[in-house]
Design a protein around this nucleic acid. Structure first.
Lengths: 339, 339
DNA sequence: CGGTCCACCGGTGGACGT
DNA sequence: ACGTCCACCGGTGGACCG
């Protein structure tokens, strides 16, 4: 499965494995979709043997926006090849798939970073290909992490150990008496401290070679292994991925960060909740200003150590930059965990 | 200008007044748009002599979703008439225009409600056509209101009197020292107490007959008259309009309501900030749950009188329902203003 | 008049439940 | 198989600025 479109590779695909599915004779009720962008097949096609940042220097250092755009590009090439002038997909289809791909590929990059990091933490040394500078934090198996790409409809509270969930539940019970609530949703990705019971599992130290369907399932299902096993202070990082920004599309992360900070810092005594937003097209500077907003919870309490709700709006230039930055983050943040 | 498409009316339009503008020979840079939905012309065409809720019984009681959909429907009819098979607009064009139309038409309905309300408040009695039940609050010129459809890029803080803006500025200055901020944006619409200097102006008591271009300008520019003249406690209602909902598109109002509550209630001593969301297609019940969220500011302070950030998610069945509900709101809320 | 910015939302691929 | 739900974002018309 090639990163660069290959007519030979495409020809060898079973129709169910193709990036474009012709559904003109099996339409979805109430939709006019003629061709589907089979997003999981697209990932397997373009990234089946490639994880950016852990591939060739050419890909690791390639403009990340172009890397992320490649699956749709390849799919359109395939669709045009098979269906010529009949082929058409709505811009909203590309938008949806491009967004999911940015999230899934970035999660995979961070998954491999975590694998490499964990391998160092258990005393296996620092892998050298491709080369990243070795973190300086003193290794400890207790400082391993898990990268969790969280699914649609998720509630990040379900990651927490039962005792912590109960604290939140009691708090909510009080609110419910007044017809109020404080629903939680989710960031796209969470980095958590690897619970003790998994610290000898090799799977958390294995870099994946590509986003084959089995590896997609491994990464997208990883969260299930950790539900109910994370301490409030062990949610080390939350990330929202937005391929491009619009001024009205900035607020789900901003709001969720505020809620996480109220519950984790305010009710559960956790240290600062690190929540960041990644994008490839910020479209102006307004978003950077919006994300300077102070965390409302800290403000209202009149605390001295008020901080931003969103720690940073990050625009990864290349996959290698994303990886380097994540290693640096781990090197700093994991010092909080007793080695 | 007919609510129902009329080939005769269309024929009499100058090309600059048409709902569809052919820009194939004058394309916008970096866009592939062939035909523009001229939204202001569309409003003038379909609502030039009609304000729903203040029109015929047929329109006032018509499904509001259909009312709001009419301008795009008429425009597509026009485009098909003039350009046959060449005519095409992207779904995102319809989406943008439909959203703005929902906002502008709903603002016009509420503008006329305010006019009728104000006329009662200055002692002119209760207009009877079309019939709405007479509010019971005792009339006072000081209880007049202004309905402000706020523009893109607006900052609601600019409505406040200078002294209040200064309080907020000082608060922000303190935050800036730590590299923090608390930027404000805006609801789509604000209902404010009419400042004393305007309480004899007739314009605030005049119902408009339709959304002709001059009337569009009157309504969209009204906010300029009140900037710097509103007391913190006089922002009576904030509204966000969202024609349809998606789970990720709920949060700008939710966040902005929280910020307004922190600043107006917390820093400026205003009573409860009423912020609501209107939609025509909630798509499930999830949004109702999301909007049960307690206001974070009140929560953190541990106050007794905690309330929701968003008071209600409202789905107007008809324009008459929207009008009735707004009259009822004014009847209740304006009691806070000394008569 | 051209370029930039703003905030609009509907069409989507996949997960899940019946 | 089918229906419902979820959260993805890019193409827009107009305001504003130089």
């Amino acid at each position: 499965m090639p990163f660069t479109y290959s007519i030979e590779a495409t020809r060898n695909l079973a129709t169910t494995e193709r990036c474009i599915q012709d559904i003109r004779n099996a339409p979805v009720r109430n939709r006019s979709t003629q061709f589907q962008l089979a997003q999981q097949n697209m990932l397997a096609y373009t990234f089946g043997e490639v994880i950016p940042g852990f591939a060739s220097a050419g890909i690791n250092g390639m403009n990340y926006r172009d890397v992320i755009g490649r699956p749709v590009e390849n799919a359109v090439t395939e669709g045009t090849h098979f269906f010529r002038d009949d082929f058409r997909v709505d811009s909203n289809a590309k938008a949806k798939v491009a967004g999911d791909i940015f999230e899934i590929v970035s999660s995979a990059v961070m998954w491999n970073c975590a694998a490499r990091w964990n391998s160092l933490m258990v005393g296996e040394g620092w892998r050298s290909q491709p080369r990243y500078s070795r973190p300086t934090l003193s290794p400890s198996p207790r400082r391993q992490v898990a990268v969790l790409n969280l699914p649609r409809s998720f509630d990040w509270v379900s990651l927490l150990v039962p005792e912590s969930q109960e604290v939140i539940e009691e708090f909510r019970a009080g609110l419910r008496k007044d017809g109020l609530g404080l629903p939680t949703s989710t960031p796209d990705l969470a980095v958590v401290v690897l619970p003790e019971e998994f610290q000898n599992d090799e799977m958390w130290r294995e870099e994946i070679a590509g986003l084959t369907r089995p590896n997609q399932i491994l990464l997208s299902g990883a969260y299930q292994r950790l539900q109910g096993r994370v301490q409030p202070g062990e949610i080390s990082l939350a990330v929202a991925f937005k391929r491009s920004l619009r001024s009205d599309r900035l607020y789900q992360p901003l709001y969720e960060a505020n809620v996480m900070q109220l519950l984790l810092e305010g009710k559960l005594g956790a240290p600062k909740v690190e929540f960041e937003v990644h994008t490839l097209a910020p479209e102006g500077t307004n978003a950077f200003v919006t994300y300077e907003a102070a965390s409302l919870y800290g403000l209202a309490e009149g605390r001295s150590a008020v901080h931003r709700a969103i720690r940073e709006l990050y625009v990864p230039p290349t996959a290698a930059d994303l990886a380097r930055r994540f290693f640096a983050f781990l090197n700093e943040r994991m010092e909080l965990v007793n080695g």
